[in-house]
Design a protein around this nucleic acid. Structure first.
Length: 329
DNA sequence: ACCTGTCAAGTCTGG
DNA sequence: CCAGACTTGACAGGT
């Protein structure tokens, strides 16, 4: 099994390379000349995109082919008071440059709209803004010229006092979405509400690939041990990717608890032990697997992990392939 | 240069 | 019904 590692959004190694520079609405609305204010937002977005391209070059230089874009590339993009603003014409070249580079480098890229995107909400207004948020992320991928392999990963959502019903409502509210949306979505188990098993069932029923977060599973396992997850849930998770039919290997998220007192928060670096154990458990049945590191130190945590893996290569049961991937037999 | 409270958005808990 | 916690990177306004 070939395992490729990637990281999320920002770099701890590059200076002045923020991909999430923003402007608060409060500040935007204080500017008298609205046209100038909008152009300022567009300049900030362009800078975020240029920094994203710098990051992709940094990835390529270190064999990293898995990367998640910042959701905050365009400040205030889906703010209600800016609904008449279409930032895409001004940013077309910058988006295309990012997409062209990702494609040329054959990188697997994604978005992770944050917790304001909740498709299972009972509130019509929240559903509407969630779909708008999803639309925004899809439009960014389209502006980059990236096909359906570039996904938007989301969670099922809240429980609203009746998780069973909340899961059904996800299916009901997902169903009427167009394929343009459905083909871009992946579903991830969360650390509080929808367990891996529950998320998997919903992913299967909605025909969406599932991203397994092994840290979330560790803190919200619904009585299913990690070992059980690897043996019983994993084959079904792999099937969600295979049946989706766009040729992507399955993807998991990996992070470590900040401390024993604070097990849900993400630590600076990744503890390799639990991840390696999981990888060994699934190596026999999985030819390719991508791992998104979600450590506080971002790319620095990836480099630290590879450094550690190199040190123990002789005994670890894996082989270092390059700067950001390993092979397990 | 550095520190602290705030930020557009949702959900959950506790009062 | 409402305030505060949760969580995150970055702003904004202060020193």
């Amino acid at each position: 099994m070939i395992v490729r590692f990637g990281f999320v959004a920002m770099s701890m190694m590059l200076d002045n390379a923020s991909v999430s520079r923003t402007m608060t609405y409060r500040n935007f609305s204080r500017l008298a000349d609205r046209g100038a204010a909008v152009r300022k937002l567009e300049r900030i977005a362009e800078e975020n995109l240029q920094h994203t391209l710098r990051l992709l070059r940094h990835c390529a230089a270190h064999d990293i082919r898995i990367y998640r874009f910042s959701s905050k590339l365009i400040p205030l993009a889906t703010h209600g008071e800016l609904a008449d603003w279409n930032p895409f014409p001004a940013l077309q070249e910058a988006f295309a440059a990012v997409g062209d580079y990702a494609r040329r480098q054959e990188m697997r890229v994604s978005f992770h709209p944050d917790h304001f995107c909740v498709l299972n909400t009972p509130r019509p207004d929240v559903l509407e803004s969630s779909v708008r948020d999803l639309e925004h992320h899809i439009r960014m991928l389209e502006a980059m010229g990236l096909g359906e392999q570039a996904k938007c990963n989301i969670h099922v959502g809240g429980a609203y006092g009746d998780k069973e019903r909340a899961g059904e409502r996800f299916l009901e509210q997902f169903a009427p979405l167009s394929d343009r949306y459905k083909r871009r979505i992946t579903l991830e188990n969360d650390d509080k509400t929808f367990t891996a098993e529950e998320t998997l069932r919903i992913a299967e029923q909605s025909g969406v690939p599932m991203v397994l977060d092994i840290h979330h599973h560790a803190v919200n396992d619904g009585g299913v041990s990690m070992e059980q997850a690897a043996s019983t849930l994993w084959p079904r998770i792999v099937r969600t990717w295979a049946q989706h039919g766009d040729g992507l290997p399955p993807k998991i998220h990996a992070s470590s608890p900040r401390s024993t007192k604070d097990v849900r928060s993400h630590a600076d670096l990744l503890e390799p032990g639990p991840l390696l154990q999981f990888l060994r458990d699934v190596a026999g049945s999985t030819p390719r697997l991508d791992v998104m590191l979600e450590a506080k130190h971002k790319d620095a945590a990836l480099f630290a992990l590879m450094y550690e893996l190199r040190q123990h290569e002789h005994a670890g049961g894996y082989r270092i392939v390059d700067g950001a991937s390993i092979e397990l037999s």
